[in-house]
Structures are given as C-alpha cells and as structure tokens.
Design a binder for these strands. Structure first.
Ligand code: MN
Ligand code: MN
Ligand code: MN
Ligand code: MN
Lengths: 147, 147
DNA sequence: ACAGAAATGTAGCCGTGTCTACATTGAATG
DNA sequence: CATTCAATGTAGACACGGCTACATTTCTGT
C-alpha cells in the first residue's frame, strides 16, 4: 500500500471494498436483530424463551436455537438448557446500539415522506448498513429540521 | 385471517413479517449486485469476464463462477465456457432498476448531510432494502428540495 | 400425582456463499 | 510452432441459516 501508481485505473478497485463492507455488515445483521429482539422480550415479558424468539423472528424453533448458539459463541448471550436466554453486557450494548439505529432510520424515512408502515419494514434491513458517520448525519439533520 | 380477536396482543406478530421481508430482500441482494456490476463491465469494457467480475466483487473466481451459475439458473444471465457473461432481458432490467435505486439512495444520503464517501459505501447495502414506495418518496423529496 | 400438552433439544437435510487446490483451456510470446 | 502464462473450469471443504422429524423435558390442569 501507499504505492498508488500515478494515472492508474484503480477506479474500480474501490467497488470491491464497498461490496466487501456490505457483506461484513450483513454478517452482523442476524446478531443485531436477535439481540435487539431478545432485549425487547426481556423488557416486555421478563424473559426470552426460545418459542417467543422463534415466533418473533418468523422462524422455526430449531432455527432460533441455532441462532442463540451463535450468540453464545460470540459472547452476546448466555443460556442453559430449558431456561430462558439472557444477554451479556456485550449483547445488551449491541441491542441498545441497534435499537437506536432502528429508531433513527425510521424517523429519517418518515421525515422525508416515507409512509410509516413502509418505513418500519424497510428500516429492518436498512439499519444494518448505516455506519456511525451516517447515523450521526441522520441525527444532525433530524434535530436541525425539528429545532 | 380477518379473524382479529378484540384486545388480542398481536402487537408482536408484525415483527415476524418485517424480519421475513428483510430476509427476502437480502436473498436478492447478491443477484442485484452482480447484474448491476456485470452491466457496468459490459458498458465499460465491452464484455464481462469471470476474472473481472471476481475482482470487482472482491471474491475469488470460483465464487464468481458460482454466482454466475445462479444468475443463469434464475434466468438473469447467459454464458458459455471460456466466453464472457451476458445479461438476459430480465438481467438488464434488474441491473437498471438497481442502478437507479443505488443512485437515488446515494443522492438522498448526501442531501441529508452524509459525506459522499460514506454515502457510497452505505448505499451498497441499503439499496437492497429500499422498497418501491420508499424509493418514490426519496425521489419526490429530492426533486421537491431541488425545485 | 399423573396424563397430556407445550416447550425445548437434537439430528440431519438442503441451498447459499465463501474459500483452497488442482486441472484444463486459450492466448500471447519467442 | 512450441512454450508458457493467464483465464477458466471443477472438486471439495467449510460456515451459515433455514427446514422437518423425532426425542426429551417441563409445565399444567384435573
Ligand atoms: Mn433488522
Ligand atoms: Mn431492527
Ligand atoms: Mn449492493
Ligand atoms: Mn449498488
């Protein structure tokens, strides 16, 4: 690196980096959705059971079990057989971060005229691809618009 | 359906639908990125070779080959051994649709103050989760802002 | 306390997307 | 024309995320 030949094409080389970053973001999406949603369940019901997690995600219970196994493997959750699922500190942190992003994305979509129903649906996918700098820009724009 | 019990919780049932739609959108993301990018290559270089496709996507050439196989299977591309890859009518249509969405998303992000570099990166993931109604809202908002 | 129902666990299948390693083909160079 | 190298094909491994089917455990109502 730092070896950028003068006049090199190199125009396209950045595309690979974009796609790569999008793939990385996507690989985190499932973890983000599960942590946020498990946190929701704990807040609302006092616990997060596999059945509820599965229903909430729209998947079967073995799929939810596998996802929780991955959460545990990545240090985001803890669970013991036949007991509810709990989030670690890291899991709670991820849940809160993703909840904030979800809300801000929905707010921004609504603010530019997207119907709330569509905003809520699209935000579920968009949120995972909003970088910190973009999130800050959204927040700044929203507060400037309101204030 | 049409059997909505009065006072039912049912609040959470919509979440599953959101997640499900996000998963569907994601399953199309790879096809969209490849069609758009192959179309770009054909425009710029006159042909889309596996090596170029792979470099552009930031993957190895067997990965690109498999992706092209899926494009063919889904009727979006055609290719014969040791020849370049071509898009079908459906593939070209998808490429153009996705290119429009990409551009509109970047424009909107920039318009609300996201730095162009970040806008370009984030748009690569966001574009796949922008529904038609949201796209229209973006376009309306942008043209209203400009006009 | 017990039987039945509900929840959870587990095994194993499939499709996808990534990779490495190796085989084959095509193109360029002398 | 022969050699060599780049491009392409192909095989096979792995991780992931979805599913069905079946086993086990826990909860619940009588
Ligand atoms: Mn989401
Ligand atoms: Mn969300
Ligand atoms: Mn993309
Ligand atoms: Mn794009």
């Amino acid at each position: 690196m730092s070896d950028i030949p003068i006049d090199a094409p190199e125009l396209e080389d950045t595309a690979a980096e974009r796609f790569s970053q999008a793939r990385t973001a996507q690989s985190l999406a499932l973890l983000e959705d599960y942590t946020e949603m498990i946190d929701d369940l704990i807040r609302e019901l006092g616990e997060a059971r596999i059945t509820d997690i599965a229903r909430q995600m729209g998947v079967t219970h073995p799929t939810a079990t596998k996802a929780v196994a991955r959460l545990k493997r990545e240090g985001l959750a803890s669970a013991r057989p036949y007991r509810g699922v709990f989030l670690t500190e890291a899991g709670i942190a991820m849940a809160e971060r993703v909840r904030l992003r979800h809300r801000v994305v929905v707010d921004l979509l609504c603010a530019v005229g997207v119907p709330p129903e569509a905003a809520e649906i699209d935000a579920e996918g968009i949120e995972h691809h909003v970088s910190d700098v973009t999130l800050q820009a959204f927040e700044a724009w929203l507060s400037q618009k309101a204030g």
